[in-house]
Design a protein around this nucleic acid. Structure first.
Lengths: 369, 369
DNA sequence: ACTGCGAGGTAAACTGTTTTAACTGATTCG
DNA sequence: CGAATCAGTTAAAACAGTTTACCTCGCAGT
């Protein structure tokens, strides 16, 4: 057997009678120094072998590598990061919504980020940006204290003023599904304008003219985009986008139900409702079904996001599909590029598409224009 | 050589004259050594101030603290961890289900873990245990390379053999919502047996006897618990738990729909369906509604988990509430205790309760027993 | 005056890497 | 034949903290 297997004879002096008893020594993990000693080379050589430095000869490389494999050496990443200045970790910053991760929307994006990060050799830490997290400047602290090399910011809105601190590009940051013209932050977003157009065009095509809007979170730039395009589309079809035709659904099922109720109370003659996300659409669906209003026969509903469960709503939901997983992947990829020195600004726009299901039909008592 | 923006140049004139080193350093962040120099004490002293070591006098402590605040010093965590042996990071390991984080179930638990971890001063990294992640022993590597001090394992089943490597308790690990008698791993779980009893008792009380079961993932111990209790309850009420009365719904909406179809095809006379999670229950609901079978008039449905959207299903779903957020919190807390040296085995059981909504009613053509 | 002691502080060793400048031989060139 | 080049390796200096063993007072006890 290999009596070399006692890798960490911490002092050479220690080789008493027991030649190779791997479990006798104080169980300190094997270090670069131990490997160097065993391989009879310097620590610098071992380090270079590890990093595939071409200055090391083929022969030495193989010799050292064999020892490394034999003793199962694993470089201590803390030490590596300490001297290399790179932590190989990125953070995902999520706002402090109660139970944030339970949201399928964030889940998709996170999945994308994690998958890509793993492939690029990065670990991902999760940060919830509660008010006192921001107040204590944690989002900067994770950089200063070398927790991370970069951050992906999700679910942020105009009131999240802390983002301005990333405007100077001193710390790599990537915003997902929102953008900030005033600070010029790097971002990766779905094409919400195009998505809204797809939904509205479809409804208009079906003959709907009186279309209610269940919006939410106008403090999010991309959410405002939806509202704006909705208005543009109505106007282009000779309809005034009345304020009474819309209500805030707060991105929740309950909010969506209330918004539907409010809109219908003011305009019993709407033939379609467009919700800015699927959760609200499902809430609206729920409300209508209680009121025995038939969807889509009496009212059509279109959602936004294409969550998994939307296909199983009752009736299944027509909605705009968002490539959230891909957004996550791309955000991560671009972030890592920036960390590695690429200076370009990032402003990616990913395409959406309409998914037609059962919640939409021709406008009642009308023919297609 | 740029003498602009020397790290400590931020401070006011007074110190500059005295101790501010003439050494014009580049824009390196301020280190313990810089603080020591400015405060005219040794680095050891500053370190001890940082760690509230009682050997430091009140006066010195305050003096040093002032300098620290003034220059905005932030200890480098990599260096701290390197010498202290603790990384203050834990990992959440999630199986490789496609788009895992998009699942509200995991989301809830993750939320709980993150919140508690933050309070305890720990960061959380996210790891997806894909097959090659396990094959390359990444789950051990994150310990050996000092990425983390401990792990929380979620969504694991009997086939996840890698868990056996945590059986020796060399590395702190906590299993969530599953348990492994063979390896005696620490775990925090919901009381699935009691939860199932609550659901079954309720159905039986409503007069149901022919109850179909939409189960899933029998390779998960806690999922088998549900099946077992279902059988026990039927038997206790004089019913043979026929194999044809149940079908695997794979924890998905689509699977739930198919399972409902299969059970009804074999037993058109079932009066209730019990689904092992809400997603499958919603899938079943969807199937029944397509078939124009009225819920709860003709068939009652009970779910499990109490996901947010279950309240907005159509009809809203009677289900067993699981304290997933609390499970996450507790798992994190116990894990940190173990990291900090508490040797006790952990085996926590958290209570569930039934949430009655609209998807259940008295069994058709029967009176309560 | 002399020892003993403890409080408060410091120098130096230590954590485990990367990196740089310097050092060998051996080969090639003038 | 001596100098220049070069490939391969090494010692030592970072990196930024923690920890330990030792030092230096001031003061109480004898």
């Amino acid at each position: 057997m290999d009596n070399l297997a006692a890798p960490v004879g911490i002092n050479d002096s220690s080789d008493d009678a027991t030649a190779a008893s791997p479990s006798v020594r104080p169980d300190r993990p094997v270090s670069l120094r131990d490997v160097a000693k065993l391989a009879q080379v310097s620590v610098a050589t071992v380090s270079m072998v590890l990093n595939d430095n071409p200055r090391i000869s083929r022969a030495t490389h193989m010799h050292v590598q064999r020892i490394i494999d034999k003793v199962g050496y694993r470089p201590n990443r803390l030490a590596q990061s300490l001297s290399s200045k790179y932590t190989q970790v990125i953070a995902i910053i999520i706002p402090a919504l109660r139970h944030a991760f339970a949201d399928a929307y964030f889940g998709e994006v996170i999945s994308g980020v994690c998958d890509r990060a793993g492939k690029l050799g990065y670990k991902v830490i999760l940060e919830q940006a509660k008010p006192d997290y921001i107040k204590s400047q944690q989002h900067v602290e994770i950089f200063e204290r070398r927790y991370v090399d970069g951050v992906v910011c999700m679910g942020v809105n105009d009131r999240h003023h802390f983002l301005s601190e990333f405007a100077d590009r001193r710390y790599p940051a990537m915003v997902v599904d929102n953008y900030f013209p005033q600070w010029g932050l790097d971002h990766v977003v779905c094409d919400y304008r195009a998505g809204t157009e797809q939904a509205m065009n479809y409804l208009l095509q079906l003959g709907h003219r009186k279309i209610g809007l269940i919006y939410a979170a106008p403090e999010i730039r991309t959410a405002r985009d939806k509202i704006e395009v909705y208005e543009e589309k109505l106007r282009a079809n000779g309809q005034e986008p009345l304020a009474t035709l819309r209500a805030d659904g707060k991105f929740t099922e309950a909010g969506g139900a209330e918004a539907a109720e409010a809109i219908l109370a003011r305009h019993p003659d709407v033939t379609a409702l467009f919700a800015a996300n699927d959760k609200m659409a499902i809430g609206a669906l729920h409300y209508l079904s209680r009121k025995r209003i038939k969807v889509p026969e009496q009212i059509s509903i279109v959602g936004f996001d294409d969550m998994q469960q939307s296909a199983f709503a009752n009736p299944s939901l027509t909605t705009v599909h968002l490539p959230l997983y891909e957004v996550g992947q791309l955000a991560c990829e671009r972030l890592v590029e920036r960390i590695r020195g690429k200076p370009d600004r990032v402003a990616e726009l990913l395409p959406t598409h309409l998914v037609v299901r059962e919640s939409t039909a021709m406008a009642a008592g009308r023919v297609t224009a």
